[in-house]
Amino acid sequence: MSVVEGTWKKSSYSNQKGGNCVEVAATSEHGAAVRDSKRRDAGRLEMPSAEWAAFLHAVKSAEL
């Protein structure tokens, strides 16, 4: 998968004081990629859309 350039979005829960910061981007295969906004060069985790949807569901329902 490859990230669609210019699509990285920082979490609204991230703060400007150096707290836990996460960015998410769409991929060209309709999936998602996640990275640490403070260490962008450290790599990213990419997943297909079905896995991203399952992850979001688990987070929203407090399963994670």
Rank of each mutant, 00 (worst) to 15 (best):
K10D: 05
S14H: 06
H30S: 15
G18R: 07
K17R: 15
L45P: 00
T7Q: 07
R39H: 15
V34G: 02
G6V: 13
K17V: 07
G18I: 07
A26Y: 00
F55E: 08
V22L: 11
A42C: 07
W52S: 04
H30N: 15
N15F: 05
N20I: 09
K38D: 10
G6I: 13
K10C: 06
D41L: 11
S37L: 05
G31H: 04
L56G: 11
D41C: 06
R35S: 03
S14L: 03
S37Y: 02
G19Y: 05
S14E: 05
E23N: 06
G43F: 09
V22M: 08
Q16G: 14
A54C: 07
V24H: 04
S37E: 05
D41K: 14
R44K: 13
T27S: 05
A42V: 09
V34K: 01
V34W: 03
A33Q: 00
R35Y: 03
K10E: 10
E29D: 14
L45G: 06
S49Q: 12
T7A: 03
G43P: 01
N20T: 11
E51V: 12
S12G: 06
A26F: 00
D36I: 01
Y13T: 02
S11H: 06
D41F: 12
D36A: 09
K9A: 08
R39L: 13
S11G: 07
R35Q: 06
G19P: 08
W8R: 01
S14W: 05
E23R: 09
H30F: 14
A33H: 00
L56R: 15
R44A: 12
K38R: 12
E51I: 10
R39K: 15
G43V: 03
M47V: 10
N20V: 11
R40V: 09
A33I: 02
G18E: 07
T27N: 05
C21E: 04
T7K: 02
V34L: 15
A50V: 14
T27Y: 03
V24G: 03
A53Q: 14
K17Y: 14
S49N: 13
Q16F: 13
W52F: 15
A25F: 05
Y13M: 07
S37K: 01
K9I: 06
C21M: 08
K38A: 13
Q16M: 13
A33W: 00
P48L: 11
W52M: 06
R39E: 13
S49W: 10
R40T: 12
F55K: 10
G18D: 08
L56F: 11
E29T: 12
Y13G: 00
K38V: 04
R40D: 09
G43C: 08
V34E: 01
Y13I: 05
T7F: 00
G19H: 04
A26Q: 01
D36W: 11
G31N: 06
N15D: 15
T27C: 02
E51C: 08
P48H: 09
A50D: 15
G43N: 08
A32F: 10
T7S: 14
